[in-house]
Nucleic acid binder design. Structure first.
Lengths: 262, 262
DNA sequence: TTAGATTGTCTCTTACAAGAGACGCATGTA
DNA sequence: TACATGCGTCTCTTGTAAGAGACAATCTAA
């Protein structure tokens, strides 16, 4: 959160509490709201993004006037506004892969009864771009837009296919290699997984983010060799090999349909 | 477009080409991309929002880095980015009415075969927030996010229900009263329509935006008396009174289901 | 070839926005 | 009653970002 600027992988301390550009503050505000996932008071917002209160009031007012933010019901809380929704729809319209991908994912989860997701890289992080819940009694939760460390996921291994070792290292922090249960992955293993996933054309991980699920993922190509997204299914960890295999087959079919020139 | 700041209803000439705040420029850029509905070169973008080229480059770079914009395939064009989509999804998630409204609209168009839309006020303008095409051979086009003068639509008459005359006047410009075919509505008639729509609880307009369609709309309430949105059907202008009546019945059912405390 | 248009980068100045902080007005609570 | 906490607005200063414009690199057309 505090290094939202990203791309500055080097520990480039800018703790000098100098003046910040308004636009950056706005970007931080939006990111902050995205992480909180709920309306928030302006005072708290200022604290959250570590900005002066007066500045925050000014910026929020601009954003509310513009419709990017809206005052939430209560009166003194803000959250995303209608305009962001409209812009988001524009993005979908302009993005064939996303639009069709969403449909495929929806279809897939209906067809299989399993939770299905479309994933992409978003500024160097794994992001669930669209997900459709399965029909199982226990919900496998996974909010859209959720950002997860790449090494925790099967999709992560596919999305990094074709990158140099250095590039992978740049994208994966030490923390990312620590699983939720405390186990630590070895970077070499992760890189080996990537190479393997690239060859086999799919990836399965078991019990990484939690102990009860398995994740099956396949790549979606935007150009030969270029992995633009992945589709994945989240299934119970005790799913039989046979069913797993047939689900992967389904995934591949749909992913191929999505891929462009692969 | 050039007075995107809105709310400055008075002809407040700010032609003094003074320095503009970066954030405002950004807001204009986003609005501009929303109107163009396609990726655009940075040079053209600068022209489009009437901003200095150097400034535009700087801002676009920031926005691209932040993920709000993306460089489009070609290489030197920009359009909305993934992050706006994610924020948009957050908005949907936080907005029951929109989320359920979208479903109702989709259902409605499947059920009736007619084009169905969810509409809201967006910074004083009528906006199609979601639309679902009907099954008729001729497509009644209406892009999501499209902004149309309030007096051209049935929904507009419902959305303004309960406003004072002065408020209505403030929201409707002279130009808004001129229909696409050149006919001019009288403000008094429009206001009378609003009052009537408020009482009957629905509104039908025929041949306003084009000569071939009729628009049936009903209000969706967020609180007793407060019209938050409308649902509408766009049907051929020669639709029988009987069918029109039954469609309105359907609309009302669904709108009631959506409304909160009405 | 030359001339013109466009694209991306860079430098330097100064107009102006970010920020500190005070203020008044609500709350709540001892 | 006094005291604390949070909210929204306002004023004033100064660090800095918006903008003008120069520059090299492409591309196109004549």
């Amino acid at each position: 959160m505090q290094d939202g600027n990203a791309l500055a992988v080097s520990a480039d301390e800018k703790t000098t509490a100098s003046r910040e550009k308004g636009l950056n503050r706005v970007l931080e505000i939006l990111d902050f709201l995205h992480t909180t996932q709920r309306a928030i008071g302006i005072g708290d917002l200022a604290k959250g993004v570590n900005a002066p209160r007066s500045t925050t009031y000014t910026l929020v007012r601009s954003l509310v006037d513009a419709g990017l933010l809206e005052m939430a019901g209560d009166g003194n809380r803000v959250y995303f506004g209608k305009k962001l929704y409209l812009y988001g729809m524009d993005y979908v319209r302009g993005n064939d892969l996303l639009r069709r991908g969403r449909q495929e994912v929806d279809h897939l989860s209906r067809e299989t009864g399993e939770t299905s997701e479309l994933c992409m890289l978003q500024s160097g992080r794994y992001t669930i771009v669209h997900s459709s819940p399965g029909t199982r009694p226990f919900r496998i939760s996974s909010a859209t837009g959720l950002q997860i460390p790449l090494p925790w996921t099967a999709s992560g291994r596919l999305l990094l296919a074709g990158l140099e070792r250095a590039e992978v290292e740049a994208m994966v922090s030490e923390d990312d290699l620590v699983l939720p249960d405390g186990r630590k992955l070895r970077l070499d293993d992760f890189i080996a997984d990537i190479a393997e996933a690239r060859i086999t054309g799919y990836c399965v991980t078991s019990g990484l983010v939690d102990a009860y699920t398995k994740c099956l993922a396949v790549p979606v190509f935007s150009a030969p060799g270029k992995v633009e997204a992945t589709m994945c299914l989240v299934v119970p960890i005790d799913t039989s090999d046979e069913r797993t295999g047939s689900l992967i087959g389904l995934l591949r079919d749909r992913a191929t349909r999505l891929s462009i020139g692969a």
